[in-house]
């Protein structure tokens, strides 16, 4: 029983972080049709900025979250304004933007390395202490991660489903031209989506850094997981991404416990590939009928 509890808790903690990362990634893909290879660095940047502000002013975690969100939103906005905006609607947008954001990722990583150095820092915003469920230790930090992810994801869901703002985003994602005919400024929606996804990434980065340490490469692994999650959910399917994040995280936790941590990701990937052979459009993706 303890083993199951342990796996569930590890899975939920991991899943929370993956969900924050992949929901944003999926939102960007769904709306702009762009795969953001720099998303991992959005996360890393959020973690580092929160770290710097925490070291300088000694802010509490709540403010740290706000700072990480702001940093993530800012980099999302900058990415859109200086790069993506000029590429939208050009030939081979999907491929080119992947290359460009990969370039941006390596650029930010190098800048972080130059500013902070490669030495891994502990995240001062992490909360100490733990409680027990049975004989299983649950850190307060894990509880916070789960709560933050839940609140933010429900917040995004509410925003997308219940508000005029969210309707405009969904409409643009579903049919860009029709949305424009309703008076939606597509450019503004893209900017908002980049900011929103950047915000989620920033928080994800902060949360990840409380579980391990800060390093310029810290975004790589969660980004990889987020990729796989988005692919198996069906690219652009935001809800599917959230669900798959938790599902795959639980799987990873279980494999990690029974077989070995290093096989967690390979098992995840093999499962994903099997799923894709069965359903190439992803678990939650709808089959697109293309007229010839």
């Amino acid at each position: 029983m303890d083993v199951v509890i342990q796996i569930v808790i590890t899975g939920l903690t991991l899943g929370s972080m993956y969900a924050l990362a992949s929901v944003g990634l999926s939102l960007i893909y769904g709306t702009l049709g762009m795969f953001n290879m720099a998303h991992g660095l959005f996360m890393t940047l959020g973690a580092y900025v929160a770290y710097s502000v925490a070291v300088a002013f000694g802010i509490p975690l709540v403010l740290g979250i706000v700072v990480a969100m702001a940093a993530g939103a800012l980099i999302g906005i900058i990415t859109h304004l200086v790069m993506v905006r000029f590429m939208l609607g050009t030939a081979d947008f999907g491929t080119n933007v992947l290359v460009a954001t990969a370039g941006l990722g390596i650029l930010i990583e190098d800048l972080l390395l130059k500013v902070y150095g490669g030495y891994p820092y502990p995240q001062p915003l992490a909360v100490e202490g733990f409680t027990r469920i049975g004989r299983v230790t649950v850190t307060y930090q894990a509880v916070i991660i789960f709560a933050v992810a839940l609140i933010l994801i429900l917040g995004v869901a509410w925003l997308l489903l219940k508000t005029r703002f969210g309707r405009a985003i969904r409409a643009t994602a579903l049919n860009r031209e029709a949305a424009m005919l309703m008076g939606v400024k597509a450019d503004t929606v893209f900017l908002q989506v980049m900011a929103l996804a950047g915000m989620l990434a920033g928080v994800a980065g902060l949360m990840i850094s409380t579980q391990a340490t800060l390093s310029p490469q810290m975004g790589g692994d969660p980004l990889l997981k987020a990729f796989v999650i988005c692919v198996v959910a069906g690219l652009g399917n935001v809800w599917g991404a959230g669900l798959c994040a938790f599902g795959l995280a639980l799987l990873e936790a279980a494999i990690g416990f029974y077989i070995g941590v290093r096989f967690g990701f390979p098992a995840m990937l093999i499962l994903v590939i099997l799923v894709l052979i069965w359903r190439p459009q992803g678990l939650f993706g709808s089959e697109k009928v293309v007229r010839l």
Partner: peptide, 8 residues
């Protein structure tokens, strides 16, 4: 051809 938002 309407161009509805199909998943709304």
């Amino acid at each position: 051809g309407d161009q509805l938002f199909t998943e709304m």
